[in-house]
Simulated assay, not measured.
Amino acid sequence: MILCLDMAFSGPYLHFLLASRIFIFKFIFAQAASPFRMKSILITIAVLFTLVLAESEKYTEKYDSLDIDAIIGNKRLMAAYVRCVLEKGKCTPEGRLLKAHITDALQTGCSKCTIAQKGGMRKVIHHLIKEEPEAWEALLDKYDPKKVYVHKYHHQLNSVLEE
């Protein structure tokens, strides 16, 4: 079973699994291990595995290479994305994904966002507030009608505006 898990993970997760396998063989299956020691080792492994899985809960990196500057520099393309997330127009695959994650990102402080996604969102928010305030207000009306997130993230919004 441990060998099968290697196929599903890569990078740090694979390293963790390999280290876990060594740990398991070295301590759990050793004849001198006491039942108490085996239980504590199993609990430790379970906790570590849970932490690794929690860390891996990020949005897909599939669209991290999108040229955000090209999108915000093209009024027609930017308007299409805004219509998409406002559910007033057709969506591209990346637009659908963005729309699907907006509420979760707002609720969690973008905790599942990659570094590239956070940087892209800062650029887009800056552009919308400075260059397309009507679109920004429409997005706020849809996703934050009570201005809960505007108040929650006011420091981040101010830092975006200072850029």
Rank of each mutant, 00 (worst) to 15 (best):
T50E: 02
L97D: 10
S56G: 13
I72P: 05
I129H: 01
C110I: 11
E55I: 06
L53C: 14
L86E: 09
A135K: 04
V47Q: 00
D104F: 09
A30H: 13
T108H: 03
L128P: 05
L48Q: 00
K142N: 07
V124S: 08
K58A: 08
K62A: 10
G120V: 11
E163D: 12
K130W: 09
T92N: 03
S40E: 11
L42T: 07
T114G: 13
T92V: 12
E163P: 02
A33I: 11
F25Y: 07
L48G: 09
D141T: 15
Q156K: 11
H15K: 03
A116V: 09
Y13G: 13
D69T: 10
N158H: 10
S111P: 05
P133A: 14
K88G: 15
T60F: 08
E163I: 06
I72C: 11
R96H: 08
A116W: 05
D104V: 15
A70S: 13
L51N: 01
V85C: 05
V82W: 00
G109V: 11
V52S: 07
M38K: 05
A33Y: 06
K142W: 00
V82Y: 02
V148L: 09
T103G: 05
I115T: 10
F27E: 03
D69K: 01
H15C: 14
R76S: 14
Q107N: 12
L5R: 04
L14G: 07
E57K: 11
A79Q: 10
D6W: 08
P145Q: 08
L161E: 08
G119D: 09
Y59S: 06
I72H: 03
E134C: 06
E162R: 03
L106H: 01
